[in-house]
Design a protein around this nucleic acid. Structure first.
Length: 257
DNA sequence: ATGGTGGTCGTACCA
């Protein structure tokens, strides 16, 4: 069984202990990390190498930053957008190949609120991302796109859909952009399986949101259609969110045969 | 109860 996981850790340096603990317990073959919040040179690479992983990193000071750790070294790494899509310097995308699998680690912009410039940037980012994935599919039929999408795909992924209606993370244009991506030939792996109700991957730090399970499912593992027959599980591990000094996100993972 | 927490950088911004 091959385990591929994703976790927005909200600062890899502040979270190094729970991240190492989780890796030791779950032994993922690949872990896509988002919001590392650190420049590439300062990323604590050795800690992951000592656990038996290769480390690929893109980063910047304070914000964003993603890293992919893998049992095998990633090949054909893209650490930035292709030139014709590269319109900013935000470090949110890291792509590499493990075996035949193309692994796309993403930290989609949050968008802040639907009336902000950041929301416009988010929708533009998603359009570029769609164009990018369309190109990747011509070369790689087996693609896993995983990360913090900052979009709850449907109302069942939101603890209080009425309260959230029209808000950033659930708005119709964001959901449409996600559906357009899925129509390229991907499935939200989580929904390939029967799941308990009210399963979320992110809970606000404020207002005891985790204790009250006031969350959203915004961390996703999309698999290309070619991988559907190999996918045997897709789950959220909410345990780390309940521990001391947690990230506000839980790790999510898929198993492939 | 229109608040509340957390990380990073530096006394503000992002989520």
């Amino acid at each position: 069984m091959y385990k591929i996981a994703s976790w927005n850790v909200n600062s890899v340096r502040a979270r190094i202990e729970p991240v190492v603990e989780w890796i030791r317990d779950y032994q993922p073959d690949i872990l896509a990390i988002q919001e590392t919040k650190v420049e590439k040179e300062l990323f604590p690479k050795e800690i992951f190498e000592d656990l038996g992983y290769y480390v690929s990193v893109v980063g910047q000071k304070s914000y964003n930053g993603v890293a992919t750790i893998s049992r095998e070294p990633l090949q054909d790494i893209l650490s930035h957008w292709p030139d014709h899509l590269n319109t900013d310097n935000e470090q949110r995308l890291l792509v590499g190949t493990a075996g035949k699998l193309r692994i796309v680690n993403v930290y989609v912009p949050n968008g802040q609120s639907v009336d902000s410039e950041k929301y416009v940037y988010k929708l533009g980012w998603l359009e570029r991302f769609h164009a990018f994935i369309k190109e990747e599919l011509t070369r790689y039929p087996e693609i896993v796109i995983l990360g913090d999408f900052n979009i709850a795909p449907a109302d069942e992924d939101v603890y209080d859909p009425k309260a959230w209606e029209g808000n950033v993370l659930v708005s119709e244009p964001e959901r449409s952009a996600l559906q357009k991506l899925l129509r390229l030939g991907f499935k939200d792996s989580f929904r390939l399986f029967d799941q308990p109700k009210e399963q979320y991957s992110w809970w606000n730090y404020r207002a005891a949101a985790f204790r009250r399970n006031m969350g959203l499912r915004i961390d996703l593992v999309l698999i290309s259609n070619a991988l559907i027959p190999r996918c045997t599980a897709s789950e959220i591990d909410k345990a780390p969110r309940g521990k001391e000094k947690p990230s506000d996100h839980a790790p999510v993972w898929v198993a492939l045969d």
